[in-house]
Design a binder for these strands. Structure first.
Lengths: 146, 146
DNA sequence: AGTATTCATCATATGCTCATGATAATTGCA
DNA sequence: TGCAATTATCATGAGCATATGATGAATACT
């Protein structure tokens, strides 16, 4: 698997929240049921996204009518901002063949192809925002989620 | 990490074997030292590759002058033949957004991009053979390995 | 103030990856 | 035959991902 389950859960849950509307909070239980994911596990995952720094990915409020919601506009939220909390995204291309220094100027035989694999993942996560996916996918997933 | 350590170890070890020559066996200890990998752990990894079916990836012989060697010509040995024993290579594109049926004809918003990520990995592993990498990389790694 | 609601947190469990070290089994060779 | 070399296998364990269930803490509402 390229992405861990935690990352996938976090992605899908965030899309649900994005689809719920602007200031509206959504309960973990509702998201968990919709995504068919253990509630407490998802709670911990969303908590990670809510706890990061001053303006995190998510915000949460406790008590009645509480829940999770996006902390930033979905258009400003890249997938990599979510995934990086749960998976190591390959930064530069680490040499697949284990060479200490594997540079463009003196590449190993696998260099270009392997770099391309990492770049495909990295670029997708960096170039795609929640807004790009939310308008359609969130609806498909969270349609009847009141 | 895209590939597990086991896969990477298996890849690098196989390249060492490919570079050693045609019928020559190489001891696990030598490969392990060269790759800086625990010997017993590597032994188990190579054993997996040697035990698969009638004509596996590797062959092994015990006792003095024993060791591991390629069971097929390096040009016929694709990286995917090695990696698939240790990692789940994404087959078709599983929908990132969790849709039950996410088809070309009715794709989710992430479909094309995510498919591309999986395809880049899959194609690299399928299109690259040990021979493609061995001639140069094996030499770099196993140069002074007698 | 009291209560229900909801997230936050803790304790625990399972299974996998990544190892380490010891022992068994097989083989080449003197 | 007997010894040394080498892979094969077993026992064990740390650490992490993936959970489950119970309890604590904050909040809205009456």
């Amino acid at each position: 698997m390229i992405l861990s389950k935690s990352s996938v859960y976090a992605l899908r849950a965030t899309l649900c929240l994005a689809d719920a509307g602007d200031g509206d909070s959504v309960r973990v239980g509702d998201v968990a049921e919709r995504l068919d994911v253990p509630q407490n596990y998802l709670s911990k995952i969303l908590h990670v996204l809510a706890r990061e720094g001053v303006l995190g990915v998510l915000a949460s409020t406790r008590g009645p009518r509480g829940g999770f919601r996006l902390a930033v506009p979905p258009g400003d939220l890249r997938l990599t901002d979510i995934v990086r909390h749960f998976d190591d995204i390959p930064e530069g291309a680490q040499c697949l063949l284990g060479r200490e220094r594997c540079l463009e100027s003196d590449p190993c035989a696998a260099h270009e192809q392997w770099r391309h694999v990492g770049a495909a993942l990295r670029d997708f996560l960096s170039d795609t925002t929640v807004a790009d996916l939310g308008s359609e996918a969130g609806k498909a997933m969270c349609a009847d989620m009141t």
